[in-house]
Design a protein around this nucleic acid. Structure first.
Length: 864
RNA sequence: GCGAAAGUGGCGGAAUUGGUAGACGCACUGGAUUUAGGUUCCAGCGCCGCAAGGCGUGCAGGUUCGAUUCCUGUCUUUCGCACCA
């Protein structure tokens, strides 16, 4: 064994060893229970970022830990290879997205390999390959025939200069990112997945997922947004009806106006002979479709001049157009009750509309000032100024009002979801072609199986103005599969969320050519035992994948209702930011690697300078590593300098996996220092010759204590890695153990056996985190054996036995001293010892204690 | 705006079931080793205080013998919001 730790050599040797024995190739044979460990696959953007390294290290730690616990582990990897960045790179560099993507994959694959991940590379999946997306197209055609996929129009961001549809991300402050043009809403035809049909099941399924974070389940439940309310109509004109939906039917008697979306037919009609209104409606159509923008913009409205009839009072109610009412939600119209809804209140105040109280809370006054205290109080409010409904509480009022509306055939109770159907049409090139043919006589016809896949040409460079496929007759000219007549192929591609919604299933049989999945393989490996990925995917990706699993189940492809049994949502990797401002006040972001931070005598930062010129820079916040803030740290540089084990150790040590992780160069140094200490301790121990691990023999008190600490650590680390998944505390416990070992200086033969036992224990306990180093250390401690084949250590009950324990003494809940007592000391003895303690006598000052609380094995609290 | 989280020393974090706040690491300070820098090793390190002691987990309340942990309110920060992935 080398006297010093050289990570490059250690890691190369270990990786070659694993490769040569195909250590991570997973098969369905054998009788060990399976463990399918899946990390969210990367988008091949160019090179790995720290978020990838963190994600895949967590997955690898769990995979290797479970291998040691006796599981047949399958850990695959692939590429989420379609997407917008490839088109942007193509335009910038004049390279086809395909070529750019494939070369990125090649480079990033080498990077992943250098991390020493235990991946079965024979299962690699790349979504932009026809072998993959042909099955997506195949499923599409099935779902289209079933009616789960349908076509309708929907609003998109339209760039009037580039004549193209923009993603929300491409709209900056209401303008197109390339053209700078003010973005407009435009309605275009799109295909939709009828996810709302599965809304109830997607909601109920959350209760079957105890292995998911509560936070994620709550977010999904709120996103699905099941609400119990009343759908009812305001009649008008010639037996026409304006429908609205409300969850607060108890406030219906407080309605003073109705607000409709700009796109609502009633608004369109009213605008025909009202130029001012027409102009306002046009103004509402300006701006993008992102909900966050719409919800935070100034609430504006205009009277249509139209009136509708209140269904219960018969009163005439004005209809307004409101820019905050969304056509895509519910009925595209809402009843407005300014007295009991915050948004309506603000709107009524602004435009001088009447406010009518219809709910009261006993003992509370109703005024503009007091209003906000209880405006929406569902629990304590009762109806007032509401005629026959006066005095009814929320539930009673809703029941009575719904019944009366039903009797008039003007409404009824209705369950509604916030979830909307999933529009998947994209007017982009680098995506999976939608397998539809438009025939002038047969309509929309799905592409027959024997004509799949609809191949995406790979040699195209987009120009940013509309979809390239729509300009390629060789792509879109075709014949109708039904009538054989001249027809046009669909040129839209699918949302890339579609590919990432089923890749987990494809990994079970990645090369299957006879179907989307091999049913037997899918049955063996699914569901995913552990899924790991960023918290930013908590809603959309995870909801779509759950939806797809149910679609595939209903096609008989997979079994079970849910794809991911356990979910771990990792936090972001964050880093400090630094910047300077130019003359125009524009921030120029400077990478942390180029900055020196000055500290005061208490190590508080007082300033920062750019290394290149020694002049000051401004310290910004600590934020998610990103290109835009130029605060990214390249993982490759860390691996090159310290090795993968140090990078892995630091990332697992600096924070628990579900919290954000702050990057720290000094922290990386600390991790490296620990590995050097561990290497040296092992080297010094094996230098005089290898011994067997301790089994029996008389031990000194110090040796006994060290051995007890080892076995306590094994117990803790097993729990931390398995149940808690807090790798930071597992590492800390091993650091403490190494510190204790270094202090232990007995050289007797039996002491050397204990040291051997401790070093073997550390090497194995940490092997999921620092596999290369553990491979080398274990090989040195046990020549001829492979750390990879070892079981996770188990604690020796005999080593854990303790005769004496420490008990804390408190007076009035404050720590005043402690006692070392026999483990089985009884309550009376403990009280007596505590009262005799000098610090307690001082605190009591002769007075008798009022009460004594004894928590066995922990503390005594004396209440004075 | 709506939904979900998080706030603990100079910093990252620990305290797992209401029971010793600050484990472990970083930074810093002092010392040893070293020609020097670096490395390594030893010691110290929440705040106030000479000490005794007091204070202390964003802020304000509450429950409890005892609260970082439970409850109410509030502030700040982060994530998501349907075409970024």
């Amino acid at each position: 064994m080398q006297p010093n730790y050289h990570p490059a050599a250690v890691e190369e040797q270990a990786q070659q060893h694993w490769d040569s024995r195909q250590a991570f190739h997973a098969t369905e044979s054998g009788d060990r229970p399976k463990y399918y460990c899946l990390s969210m696959f990367p988008y091949p953007s160019g090179k790995l970022h720290m978020g990838h390294v963190r994600n895949y290290t967590i997955g690898d730690v769990l995979s290797r830990y479970h291998r040691m616990k006796g599981f047949n582990v399958m850990q695959p990897m692939g590429w989420d290879a379609f997407g917008l960045p490839a088109e942007n790179a193509a335009m910038a560099n004049n390279v086809p997205p395909a070529a750019w993507t494939y070369s990125n994959i090649e480079y990033m694959k080498q990077q992943l390999k250098s991390l020493g991940l235990g991946i079965d590379w024979e299962r690699e999946v790349t979504t932009c390959r026809p072998e993959y997306y042909r099955w997506e197209q195949w499923l599409f055609t099935r779902l289209f025939k079933k009616g789960v996929i349908y076509k309708r129009t929907a609003s998109v961001n339209w760039d009037p200069i580039d004549q193209t549809v923009l993603a929300n991300e491409q709209v900056i402050d209401g303008r197109g990112w390339r053209s700078g043009a003010l973005v407009e809403k435009r309605d275009i035809p799109m295909y939709f997945f009828r996810i709302t049909q599965y809304a109830d099941e997607l909601l109920a399924g959350l209760d079957t997922l105890p292995g998911w974070p509560e936070q994620v389940k709550t977010m999904q439940a709120n996103w699905i947004g099941k609400s119990f309310g009343v759908r009812f109509a305001f009649p008008y004109g010639n037996a026409e009806k304006l429908w609205v939906y409300t969850t607060r039917a108890d406030t219906i008697m407080g309605v003073t106006f109705v607000a409709v979306a700009a796109e609502h037919p009633l608004a369109t009609r009213a605008a025909q002979n009202n130029p001012a209104l027409a102009a306002f409606i046009e103004e509402c159509k300006k701006g993008g479709v992102a909900e966050a923008d719409i919800a935070t913009m100034e609430k504006k409205g205009m009277d249509t001049g139209l009136k509708v009839t209140h269904p219960l009072t018969g009163e005439q109610v004005p209809v307004w157009v409101g820019n905050y009412v969304l056509m895509g939600y519910g009925e595209g119209a809402v009843m407005a009750v300014p007295a009991h809804d915050e948004r309506d209140f603000g709107f009524a105040k602004k435009y001088g509309l009447p406010i009518r109280q219809s709910i009261a809370v006993a003992g509370e006054s109703f005024s503009d000032a007091a209003w906000q205290e209880w405006y929406g109080d569902k629990e304590n409010g009762v109806c007032v100024n509401s005629g026959k409904y006066d005095g009814l509480n929320y539930a009673q009022a809703v029941d009575a009002i719904a019944a009366d509306l039903k009797a008039k055939d003007l409404g009824d109770k209705q369950v509604q979801f916030r979830l909307r159907d999933w529009g998947i049409s994209r007017q982009r090139y680098w995506g999976c072609p939608i397998p539809i043919i438009h025939c002038p006589t047969c309509g929309d016809v799905s592409v027959p199986d024997d004509q799949l896949p609809v191949r995406l040409p790979e040699n195209v460079v987009p120009d940013g103005a509309g979809s390239p496929l729509a300009k390629m007759p060789e792509f879109y000219e075709c014949t109708c599969p039904q009538c054989g007549g001249k027809a046009k192929r669909e040129t839209d591609t699918m949302d890339t969320f579609v590919e990432s919604s089923w890749y987990y299933a494809r990994y079970a049989s990645p090369q299957c050519t006879t179907g989307m999945v091999d049913k037997a393989a899918a049955q063996h490996w699914l569901s995913v035992d552990q899924y790991i990925g960023g918290i930013e995917h908590a809603i959309l990706h995870l909801l779509y994948a759950r939806f797809f699993h149910k679609l595939m189940r209903d096609e008989g492809l997979v079994q079970g209702d849910e794809p991911f049994k356990n979910l771990l949502t990792q936090g972001m990797v964050i880093a400090p930011t630094f910047y300077r401002e130019d003359a125009a006040g524009k921030k120029l972001w400077i990478n942390p690697a180029e900055v020196d931070v000055q500290l005061d005598e208490r190590s508080r930062p007082v300033g920062a300078t750019l290394r290149a010129d020694g002049l000051p820079v401004i310290i910004g916040g600590t934020e998610k590593m990103s290109k835009s803030k130029n605060n990214g740290v390249d993982p490759q540089a860390i691996i090159d300098e310290y090795g993968a084990d140090t990078a892995r150790l630091f990332m697992m040590f600096a924070a628990p996996p579900d919290q954000s992780l702050e990057w720290s160069d000094a922290g990386v140094e600390g991790a490296f220092r620990f590995l050097k200490r561990l290497w040296k301790a092992t080297h010094d121990h094996v230098a005089p010759g290898v011994v067997a691990a301790y089994r029996e023999g008389e031990l000194s008190a110090a040796a006994k204590a060290l051995r007890r600490q080892l076995h306590q650590t094994i117990q803790k680390v097993d729990d931390d890695m398995g149940r808690r998944k807090t790798f930071n505390t597992a590492i800390a416990a091993n650091m403490e153990l190494l510190n204790a070992l270094v202090k232990f200086d007995e050289q007797t033969p039996v002491a050397r056996h204990v040291v051997q036992e401790v070093l073997e224990g550390i090497a194995l306990m940490l092997s999921p985190i620092i596999p290369h180093l553990s491979h080398a250390l274990y090989g040195a401690l046990r020549p001829g054996s492979d750390a990879l084949d070892q079981a996770f250590p188990t604690p020796d009950p005999a080593a854990l036995v303790q005769d004496e324990i420490e008990i804390v003494i408190q007076v009035n809940g404050k720590l005043r001293g402690n006692l070392t007592v026999a483990k089985n000391a009884d309550k009376a003895t403990l009280e007596q010892l505590a009262l005799a303690h000098p610090a307690v006598e001082k605190q009591l000052a002769g007075a008798a204690p009022k009460k004594i609380v004894v928590v066995p094995g922990r503390l005594i609290n004396i209440v004075a």
